[in-house]
């Protein structure tokens, strides 16, 4: 008697808990299967993602030159060193300049290409492939073509040849920081590489705009061209535009390949990652300061990501399922 009563009392609670640990007639328990599926990934994540981050955090408080198992605790010395280091702070400035160039230009070019391709009736697939093809190239390959062929600072470089036809003197594109022509080289290389990718995003978004909107606008007397673009197309693309801009910002923050290859052995135009590379893995092998720099950059990018999350509502609501 009493047992049945307790069971009755317990039943609602058990029923509530059942989605969490059900005992259905399945092969194997869900808990076991959960770990079976996620285990390999989580172990790797712990070893190769979390452990390095924690180790780096630990290193950043030690004087660690040429060693990764230091014993001299220095508190926040590495942090103050990095934050007062002209090269490191300067690299953040370089990133800002770079982002100011690359984000608006890529946005405009990829949107422009998407609008062009979207209106084509013939050869649309062909031109889409042409603009998309550079996405297959690596930054290293593009840097090489840019540095040794197009923007070679000597006579036989393509740009200097073309400029020569108009009687313009050779420009030392990369070898001279004043005037800073190297920005032109770096920005055009990245534009070529990534515009096609963002064009695909814009194309997908353009094709999701309902055609009725344009019909309604035409009935209301909107002129095709600038007016429909300004009042229909652009507002409809707002979500994609925001996402593209944030993706571009994060990508610019992590820029390394083209700066490293185009501006090798120069002291100007070093974005944060290049600076960090030379600091930690260069001749000084200063892992302490390098780790402190990595922590600072991580904090900065976390701030950006969190702002982005607030801005876009990313990740909200979907975890609850």
């Amino acid at each position: 008697m009493s047992t049945t009563k307790t069971r009755d009392l317990a039943r609602p609670a058990a029923a509530k808990a059942s989605p969490a640990k059900p005992r259905r007639a399945l092969r194997g328990s869900p808990t076991f299967n959960f770990w079976l599926f996620t285990g390999p990934f989580l172990i790797g994540l712990a070893i190769f993602v979390y452990a390095p981050i924690l180790w780096s955090l630990w290193l950043s408080f030690f004087e660690a030159r040429f060693t990764v198992t230091p014993d001299k605790f220095v508190g926040f010395e590495n942090y103050t060193y990095m934050l007062t280091n002209d090269d490191f702070v300067g690299s953040l400035g370089t990133f800002t300049v770079f982002a100011a160039f690359i984000v608006p230009t890529t946005w405009a070019l990829s949107l422009g290409l998407a609008l062009l391709v979207n209106r084509l009736r013939f050869m649309r697939a062909f031109f889409r492939s042409v603009f998309f093809l550079p996405t297959a190239c690596s930054y290293v390959a593009a840097s090489l073509i840019w540095k040794m062929s197009i923007f070679s600072g000597v006579r036989f470089g393509m740009m200097n040849t073309v400029l020569g036809w108009f009687g313009i003197e050779n420009i030392a594109w990369l070898a001279d920081p004043s005037p800073p022509w190297y920005w032109f080289v770096i920005v055009t290389a990245r534009l070529w590489l990534q515009s096609g990718f963002y064009m695909i995003l814009f194309l997908a978004a353009l094709q999701n705009i309902p055609g009725e909107l344009y019909e309604a606008a035409a009935i209301d007397g909107a002129k095709p061209g600038w007016q429909t673009f300004r009042y229909i197309t652009l507002p409809q693309l707002r979500a994609t535009s925001t996402a593209v801009i944030l993706l571009l910002l994060i990508a610019a923050y992590q820029a390394f390949d083209e700066f490293y290859n185009l501006l090798s052995k120069t002291t100007w135009g070093r974005p944060p990652l290049v600076e960090l590379y030379y600091k930690a893995l260069g001749e000084s092998q200063d892992y302490g300061a390098g780790s402190a720099g990595a922590v600072i950059l991580t904090v900065l990018i976390c701030a950006v990501t969190l702002l982005q999350g607030k801005f876009l509502g990313f990740g909200r609501g979907e975890e609850s399922k």
């Binding site: 989580l42 994540l45 290193l59 990652l273 990018i301 990501t305 975890e319």
Partner: peptide, 25 residues
């Protein structure tokens, strides 16, 4: 959910920035 948040947390730290500690490891 907790496991999922642990995975999501790593998205905050781009792998390019952890190359120094990863190399150390």
């Amino acid at each position: 959910n907790k496991v999922f948040y642990a995975v999501l947390g790593t998205l905050m730290v781009p792998t390019a920035i952890t190359f120094v500690p990863s190399f150390v490891l």
